[in-house]
Design a protein around this nucleic acid. Sequence first.
DNA 1: AGGCGAAAGTAAGCAGTGTCAACATCGGAG
DNA 2: CTCCGATGTTGACACTGCTTACTTTCGCCT
Lengths: 191, 191
Amino acid sequence: MSTSEKSGYHHGDLRAALLTTAMQMLEAGESFSLRAVARGAGVSATAPYRHFADRDALESALAGEGFRDLRADLVGDGELPASLDDLAEFGVAYVSFALRRPALFRLMFGTPCDDENDERVRAAAALNELLAQALAQVAPGADAGALADAGWGLAHGLACLYLDGKLVAGSSGEVEARVRAAFAAVTANVG
Amino acid sequence: MSTSEKSGYHHGDLRAALLTTAMQMLEAGESFSLRAVARGAGVSATAPYRHFADRDALESALAGEGFRDLRADLVGDGELPASLDDLAEFGVAYVSFALRRPALFRLMFGTPCDDENDERVRAAAALNELLAQALAQVAPGADAGALADAGWGLAHGLACLYLDGKLVAGSSGEVEARVRAAFAAVTANVG
DNA sequence: AGGCGAAAGTAAGCAGTGTCAACATCGGAG
DNA sequence: CTCCGATGTTGACACTGCTTACTTTCGCCT
């Protein structure tokens, strides 16, 4: 009870509270409105405008969190992939993230990106760099750029297609298996 | 002037007119509203409800058109790909479609799919089947399913990433080149 | 301590949206 | 010719993002 509800008028840390409730709505349901977020934080409809320029700014902040979380998921055990098999696990983790937090994933990628939000751009760039490093380490000989594009593209594409139900699998275990198979089919003799 | 404006009250072929204006808005700007579409067709705000259950139904119909158009683009010259190089051209065409008609592409894939729209589902399935056929023909020996997943996933992922600006290229020619390179990096020794 | 400016919140309101219910109009089958 | 069902219209409701103007509170300076 350090940074919360001090007086009833001034919230204490509204910005964080708004991000939290917005993220919860994203995880639970699907869409959210600024007004609903404000309501959830127990605050008037226009209060969020003291902390976010507009709806897009809130969404960008959430997307930034999303990129950091995704990066954390990918790098989970703290090691970059050292082999092509490890690379496939990157893909599996990427797709799992998308399926586990679909609304967030859509927010991160589905929206036309306003490239004016520093935090969001930086978080996305960090993710990009992580993938490039991983790829370069796995296949030092090959065309690193093209391979990085392909790796990210494949993971991202599978994530989107499973998310949209364009590709269908019964269980999450089956999804993982098929993602591994797709990576295997393609990395068969690379490097 | 065969199927248009007969009396001023009854439109003649509102459903088609709505789809046309909605598609035009999609091509030109970004988003559209049911009301704006109705306005564009010169009709009251609620008239569309005689032809579409709700906004989603209109969007699904547009998405259906999109899937058919995409299929036509991919199969343009009338031939399925006979080699891996041809397959890369599939990917190039896929990405080009996404970049040429971004709003439509987002509508087709970005929206949580309501799988109750027959037309849309059928159109998407047709596209899926086309890709599977193509892949099976190119690499008859390999794991056809996994390869089809990988091919579609790679094309789709690159399309999304370029569309969102997560991958950046100066000209459309450069995009094409990088898509080809990504496919090449990955299909190097497949089959 | 006290007061004062800025920060953080509220209230009222505008334009726009998706959708519903009730009403108007017209073309075509009987 | 008449009437009925398909097609369009009007009006309204609840909701949204956002602006403007007002109020409350915090914290710093003297």
